[in-house]
Amino acid sequence: MTDTPAARSQAETIRDKLTAALTPTVLELEDDSHRHQGHGGWREGEETHFSLYIVSAAFEGKSRVERQRMIYTLLAEELAARVHALQIKALAPSQL
């Protein structure tokens, strides 16, 4: 794989965007695509399903809906294009 933007994986792009905007203390992103083989939105060989666990001070004082909206807004492009599903658990450090 070359390091051109086009060749960057969805996972790398997602990780970079979240890191830049939210400076998370924990960021675990798992590609679950294989677990959804043959289900809706799944496409052979593509990264379509992810689950995310993220802890960031930016979520402090925010409701669950607000936190997820922040993430959805940052990843709007990815969600509109290739990513079919993103499971999210977003916590503030004080909730750990």
């Binding site: 669950r64 809906v65 997820q68 658990k89």
Partner: peptide
């Protein structure tokens, strides 16, 4: 609006 699947499960 309450949320989507992750929020409801949690």
């Amino acid at each position: 609006f309450v949320g989507g699947c992750d929020i409801i499960r949690e």
